[in-house]
Simulated assay, not measured.
Amino acid sequence: MNIEDYMKETPVKMKEIIQGADELFAEVRKEKFSRIVVTGSGTSYHSAAQTKKLMQHFLGIYVDVFYPFQIDKETFLDDASKTLLIGISQGGSSYSTYHAMKTGKEAGCSIASMAGTEGALIDEISDYILTVRCGEETAGAKTKGFYCTKLNLTLFALQLAKSYGRISAEDYAAEITQLEAYADHFLAIYEQSLQWVSQNRENLAAAKDIRVVGTKEIYGDTLESALKLLETMRIPVTGYEFEEFVHGIYNAVNEDSTIIILDTGEEGRVETLINVLSDWTDHIYVIGKNGRETPKDLKADFLNHPFYKTYEYIIPVQLVCAYVPQLKGIDPSTPKDKDFHRKLGSKKLDR
């Protein structure tokens, strides 16, 4: 299967994960934690970074998100007995995530794993196995797993918040209704995005470098957009929060630069930024509910929920990743080197 096939599976898998939440989190929600630490690399890290604010909002406790290499003994200077460390790895085989989880366990943390498969390496060290039941995803550039990992973290937070008395059963049901609405709306945004990609694919295929700029509430999605474009287009791509971009990054924009702006409507200076950058490059694309009257802008029917907009703004970028690289002779579903992780010893692989 390829990227677009997995994307089309996403709303069904989201519904299945929602339906299985009571069972999946039955044990972990019995415990009372004062701190949550989440770790993972790449897409896993971006899932946690995107969900951090939501988790803190509902749980009312500190939530920290770290890359595995950032976790050491100094990460847990205080009593860690009420800290839960969640290790995320969609394939479940990341040695760096495993070793970070081991460090947390030695410091006294409880350990949970969120892998996209049963019987994963990271499950071996875990007190709570919270599998992301998104189903197999063999494409090198993960898409379905990104949505489902964010959803798993969200449901984890909502389940614990209800158990802790932070939200009522009615509040929980209302959040689930919102999440289901996004699952139901997914394919509508998919089709609108597909039309936009079809209109712009030749110009996007000619891009020499890309900057993705997003507002702060979708920072994790901005980072993930840049990673997916880099993995599939195989050109330099970077992602920045809006304020960070205007604090210096703009200096690198020239006539060859392609800019993709994720405009949620939260930042009032987007139009001004577009006007300034338009003096330097013609390759500016805006994804949002509003936008200019130009084929380069995608004006989609985004629902724009404060937390759950994360399930819609990245859809068009992922479809760029699915279709545009093919014009460059690249199969975006296949890594450049299938044997890379064996050579680097970075994952536990089946021999």
Rank of each mutant, 00 (worst) to 15 (best):
F69Y: 11
D279W: 06
Y98T: 10
I261K: 11
G108R: 08
I3V: 10
K347I: 09
S110K: 15
V276P: 00
K142T: 11
V320I: 15
T103G: 09
Q19R: 15
F58N: 01
L319R: 13
S34F: 05
L153F: 07
P325S: 08
S333P: 03
E224M: 05
Q19D: 14
V197G: 07
G42D: 03
F146A: 08
E124W: 08
P332Y: 12
G40K: 06
E241N: 07
C134D: 14
N200V: 01
D282G: 14
E9P: 09
G145W: 10
L319H: 11
K15M: 10
I36K: 11
E224Y: 03
V212T: 11
L229H: 07
V324M: 10
S225W: 04
K309T: 09
A80R: 04
I249G: 00
V213G: 00
V38F: 08
I249F: 05
T258S: 07
Y62Q: 14
L230K: 15
A207P: 11
G288D: 03
P68N: 14
T117M: 13
T238Y: 00
Y67D: 04
S89W: 03
Y311A: 09
S47P: 08
P68E: 08
Q195L: 13
A139H: 07
Y164I: 05
D282K: 15
Y323D: 03
L84N: 10
E266A: 13
A26F: 05
A112M: 04
L151C: 04
Y285R: 04
D127H: 11
L303Q: 15
K142P: 04
I249S: 01
H283E: 06
Y219P: 00
Q192W: 03
K15Q: 10
D337M: 10
V317G: 10
E224N: 12
V320H: 09
L24V: 01
N290D: 14
R35T: 05
T334Y: 06
D127Q: 02
F302Q: 04
F146G: 06
K8Y: 09
D282R: 14
K348T: 05
M55W: 04
I235V: 09
S193A: 14
R35I: 03
T258F: 01
A205F: 08
C148H: 07
E136R: 15
D350C: 09
A169M: 02
K347G: 06
V37I: 12
T10W: 08
K309N: 14
F69A: 11
E312C: 11
I129A: 08
E180G: 07
S126E: 06
D78C: 06
L277F: 00
Q19P: 01
K338W: 12
G268Q: 15
K105F: 07
I218L: 10
H99E: 15
G214S: 01
E27G: 06
F33Q: 03
L262M: 15
R29I: 00
T154P: 00
S168C: 02
N200A: 09
A115E: 09
L160R: 09
P316V: 04
L151S: 02
L303W: 06
H46A: 07
G239Y: 00
T238S: 07
T294I: 12
T222I: 02
T310K: 12
G119W: 07
N152E: 03
A157Q: 05
T310S: 15
G220W: 02
D263N: 15
T215E: 14
D301L: 09
K8I: 11
S96Y: 10
I260S: 07
